[in-house]
Structure formats: C-alpha cells, structure tokens
Design a protein around this nucleic acid. Structure first.
Lengths: 241, 241
DNA sequence: CCAAAAGTGTTATATTTACACCCATGC
DNA sequence: GCATGGGTGTAAATATAACACTTTTGG
C-alpha cells in the first residue's frame, strides 16, 4: 500500500490521462429570507431519474475557472446579483451520486436579499422558485443532503459572524434582525437583551430614519457598518450572538 | 449566461467526456504533537520544479472511492494507523496549482499520536519526516497555503470540540493537556481555572493511575471518556475551552 | 534539602438571564 | 380607543479571571 513519492509521480503521469479524472461541479444552496421565513432557490430538474423533482443550482466547473469562480458564475447567472455572500462548505463525492457519470461536487451556500428587482429577474426564469426550507422534503440527486449540510454550516456561522445582514434589506429595524435570528436558528430571544447585546457590539449604525407606513409606532432603522466591524475584528473582537 | 436546466443536461452529456474533467486529489495535513511541539508529517518532493522541497502527503482520488476514503487510504499508507481523526477542510482549485495538469485538491487534516510504534513505522519510509509547524517556511505546490488553512481550522475546532485528545497518549496528565492547548493555540492558561473547567466538563475519567519515574510528585492520569461526551452532547451541551 | 511539578479555594469582575410597563402610530 | 410593535432598566444568577501556597516525589 505504501508508495513513495517518485512512484506517485509516475502513477500520476499515466493515470491523469486515463480513468483518474472526474467531472467536478459546484452546487449552490442559495438562501433568501422573506416573509419571516428562510427560503432556498431551487430549479425544476429534468434529468432522469429525477424528473419532476427540485434541485439545487449548479454547473460543471470549467477548465479555466476555480470552483469558487464557478459557484459565483452560477450565482450571477441565476440571480442576477454580482455582489453576493458565498461560502464553500463541503465536497460530496459518493461514487454514484450522479446518474450520468462520476461527478464530484463542491457545495456552497450563499445569502441574498430577496427584493423586488430580484423577483423580477426570476420571472424570466420560470423554472426557478423560492421554497421554504421547512417545506422541502426531498430534492434530486443528493441535494437534500447537501442542503442540510449547508444549512447546518450557515446556522453556525450566523452565530459567529455578522453574515445575517446579507439576508436583510440595507436598512432594517432591530425587530427584523431579531426575528431573522429566531426564525433561522429556531430559538427565542429576549427583546431587551438582544438590543443591549447588539448595542454593545457596536456594529450597527443608526441612520436616523424610521419605518414608514406601519400601523404602529415606527421603528428606527439601522445598517450594518462593515468598516467598523473590520476595524474591531483586527483588535481581537468577535461577533457572537 | 443564464442556462435552463435542460440545456445543462445537454451540455453535460457532451462536456463530461471532453475537457470538462479534472484530476482530483486529496492532500492530508497530518498533525502530531510531541515534545511540547505541534508537528506535521511531510515528505520529500521529487517532482519538478519542486525537487528538494517538502510536500504534504496526498494522492489522486481513485474512481472507486470517495474523497474521504482516498484521504483515509493515504493516511493508512503513510502512518500505518487505521483509526485516525480525519476532517475535510477545503478545496483548492487554482488552475495552475499543479505543474503537470489541472489538479483540484481536497485538503484534509488529521490528528495522530506520535508514539514509538509509529516512529518505527516511519523508519521504513525514510523520505517521511515530522517537522515542527513553526519551522515550516515553504512547501511544494500550494501546500504551505493548504497547511495554514488546515491549521486555522484545526485551532478553531480544538476550542470547540474534544479533539485534542487524539494528539495525546491514551493516558495523560492534566498538565500535559493544558500544555497541548497552550502550545497549539499559542496562549497561556491558568492552571487552577483550567482544571476546574475540565472538571466541570465531566468528560475526563480518572483512571486511578499516576505517572511513573518522574523526578517530582507524580500526576494523576486521565483518559477522555468518549461515551460520556456523546451522551452529554445529545442533551445540548458543548465543549468549549 | 533541593528542584520540579502536583494539587487545591476564594474573591472580584463581567456576563447572562429574567422580567413589565409606557409610548407612538394607523385605523 | 384599540391593536400593534417600539422602546427602555434593574436585580439575581452565573461564569470568568486573578492569584499563592503546601505537597510529593527523585536525586
């Protein structure tokens, strides 16, 4: 079993040109948050034997791009956004995970704001749809599994890094932010403690605006101040819900 | 740019057989802890243009194995151990990262105990060596970069999960454990607070033995009780240094 | 008896939790 | 005026951090 380095080289020179190559793809779990629910952007799948199922958005990795670039290309193609949060999660490489041939896939998750511009973009792409995470029972290929791995990772990072803002509009109220954590993490938070905590973190900027046309006292609006966060991060500080 | 699902299928059917396949490899950052230092198992590299440099241990992924299996195969081949802690970290896919052809690699890190049996095994493999992490300034390919990604990930997990025990002998003293955290994380810990904390975690078993042939008061020896940890984990409890 | 690490408690400080009422707005 | 969420403080409990001396062993 033990091979030394020079053997490896020889093996590689011959094997790389034969059966030792695989198709490599990326699959993106694109999360959006809307209407107090966490959603995923999925596509109808036409490939046997998964016709009539839903699948994640992905594509094969091209020879002239990294996997990160491939994932970003898929995102831009499917959502129209160029500036999206994207995070590599994990490789899925079961031998028979794809019916056509061996396809090793790299799973990514992405966070985007579901806004009107974007919904407009989707209309041109009628096989795409947002579906609530909780309503997904199965997906084509091993995509259900992939989605849950990404969900787990995203939930962890949501607590450890200020990524939740990617799911909200530029301006948001503290209750919107609290609801986002509650919905995604499936927990309950105390309003006062939550506000104190976020105040202490010092990464929100009160923009001096308030909600409009709400049938109750309008809330102050905030934005996430990324530059302050980056500055604080350097001096050994960590976001932690 | 936008392609719909059925187009994708057609693209795939033709492209998978042409230029759209890549060689996929695994690279293992094998950490060991010995002599109060964190070390990595590396190999001399004979492949131009990296002759005389050191490289990580890796191999191409075979058609009949997952990437996890490939990584485990490399580990068994190089270390002789079959029961090792192994964790997938990240994909490295820069187009020219390998001089021979496009090789997309999956980085793994592994934690093993450096003991005498193992050193014996290494003697048969004279191009392998343990080298202190701090003494590594460069490695072949992008392996230096890979090593640091794995180091960062390992340090994070060391604080969040009881993985450090994989680097220690079966029986260890509390000071040994404390030193391990201090060395790897490059921090100082208070002896009493550390002991109280680990006592509170309740995952160590006092095996009623003590150190032998030490020229000072011998310490009690403990083992990590994995079954208790697993039980506690289910009832929502987390290791956190 | 000396060197070296083992082992052990208390106090101050910081963090986290629990909890209830009045306020501003639209209808 | 009523329904809806906005906004605010305090006290108790818990967790963390700082800190020094006696004990046991080998040489």
């Amino acid at each position: 079993m033990t091979t030394n380095t020079s053997e490896n080289i020889n093996i590689w020179l011959t094997q790389i040109n034969n059966d030792f190559k695989a198709a490599v793809s990326v699959d993106c779990v694109i999360f959006g948050y809307d209407d107090d629910a966490l959603k995923v952007l999925v596509s109808r799948c036409d490939m046997p034997p998964y016709e009539h199922q839903l699948s994640l958005l992905g594509d094969i990795v091209h020879p002239d791009e990294t996997t990160d670039e491939a994932a970003m290309r898929v995102l831009i193609a499917k959502t129209g956004f160029t500036d999206v949060y994207l995070e590599q999660v994990q490789v899925f490489s079961d031998i028979h995970r794809h019916p056509l041939s061996r396809v090793i896939t790299i799973a990514y998750y992405s966070l985007i704001k579901i806004d009107e511009d974007h919904l407009l973009h989707l209309e041109k792409n009628d096989h795409l749809q947002w579906i609530e995470v909780n309503e997904i029972n199965s997906l084509a290929f091993d995509h259900f599994n992939i989605m849950h791995s990404c969900l787990r990772r995203m939930r962890k990072q949501l607590r450890e890094q200020p990524i939740g803002f990617n799911l909200l509009p530029e301006k948001f109220s503290l209750l919107q932010l609290q609801r986002l954590f509650e919905v995604i993490l499936n927990i309950q938070l105390d309003k006062r403690n939550f506000r104190r905590k976020l105040g202490a973190l010092g990464i929100l900027k009160d923009i001096g605006e308030i909600e409009e046309s709400v049938s109750h006292r309008p809330a102050r609006l905030y934005t996430f101040d990324k530059s302050i966060y980056e500055k604080k991060k350097k001096t050994g500080y960590s976001f932690d819900l």
